[in-house]
């Protein structure tokens, strides 16, 4: 157990244990699977309709062809499912716990508090979006028809992971803001609203919005750049910027979280 970096191995083990217990818990509520599946299918149907409308007017949107945009939508759905299954439930719980003073219990444990609050919850059935998104992505790739090499798949998975970490950091900063603001009930709606913008490649938006969606809310790294990877549009520049930004975000969000912790007084009983 005492590896070279006991702190890190501890974090991974902790995450796996929580994941296992969380999944066991979710499996009890099988009806949620069907509800989520219907929800996923409805969402993708709405998205496809919008896409069809766009391409009834034009053949090209900001340099992206129809099947390429379909791929973006697939990636968008996959990433959304992942965010809603593991990132969002944990971060929302932080917001609630701060308000109700329940964070006490996470802080009196001999584990890194940030790791602990980031792995406590999992919404298994939100992963239906990942399944539906994958299907859409595969269909899009078949339509593109160039064939996808294993390098592209490796790049896609790698970039996707980087993008998810970036989104996690962004959410952690949002959640940490609750140490100062206390009431942040609407923060999830705010995030959902902004996330919806990721349905299209950020390149199609005007400059200020493009940069906002890249560096302020790191949507570009979570959706657009992975989509570039799988549609053969990836540049080394994009990878470098995504990696560097994510490293900066990791440090920044941890700093912000720890500043917040110091302010935490817990709701009095």
């Amino acid at each position: 157990m005492q590896g070279r970096d006991p702190h890190r191995t501890g974090a991974a083990r902790l995450a796996l244990t929580f994941l296992r217990v969380g999944v066991m818990n979710e499996v009890q509520y099988r009806v949620n699977f069907f509800i989520q599946l219907v929800q996923s299918l409805l969402t993708i149907a709405t998205g496809l309709t919008a896409l069809a409308l766009v391409f009834s007017q034009t053949d090209d949107l900001g340099g992206w062809t129809r099947p390429q945009l379909l791929a973006v939508m697939g990636v968008f759905t996959i990433v959304g499912g992942m965010i809603r299954s593991v990132i969002q439930p944990n971060m929302q719980r932080v917001v609630e716990d701060v308000r109700e003073g329940r964070l006490d219990f996470a802080l009196t444990k001999p584990a890194d508090a940030q790791v602990l609050v980031s792995v406590r919850d999992v919404r298994l059935w939100q992963l239906t979006d990942v399944g539906v998104g994958l299907i859409v992505l595969v269909i899009a790739l078949i339509q593109i028809g160039d064939g996808v090499g294993w390098q592209a798949i490796v790049a896609f998975v790698g970039i996707l992971a980087i993008g998810l970490v970036a989104i996690y950091c962004f959410w952690l900063m949002l959640a940490s803001a609750s140490f100062w603001l206390v009431r942040m009930n609407e923060v999830q709606e705010l995030f959902d609203g902004v996330y919806r913008a990721g349905q299209y490649p950020v390149g199609i938006y005007p400059g200020w919005l493009k940069y906002g969606l890249t560096f302020l809310v790191p949507l570009a790294f979570a959706v657009t750049v992975p989509s570039e990877a799988v549609t053969g549009r990836l540049t080394w520049q994009a990878v470098t910027v995504a990696g560097a930004t994510t490293v900066v975000l990791l440090a920044l969000s941890r700093w912000f979280w720890q500043r917040g912790l110091r302010r935490y007084g817990g709701a009095s009983s």
């Binding site: 244990t17 217990v21 066991m24 818990n25 006490d104 219990f105 009196t108 602990l116 009983s269």
Partner: peptide, 28 residues
């Protein structure tokens, strides 16, 4: 350890046995 009578720290939807398991991981 900190126990507060008016709060609960066990996972609400899970049997206590599972929460114990989580504590085992946390405290190694």
């Amino acid at each position: 350890t900190l126990v507060m009578g008016n709060r609960n720290q066990l996972q609400w939807d899970l049997p206590a046995m599972d929460s114990f398991e989580l504590n085992r991981a946390i405290y190694r």
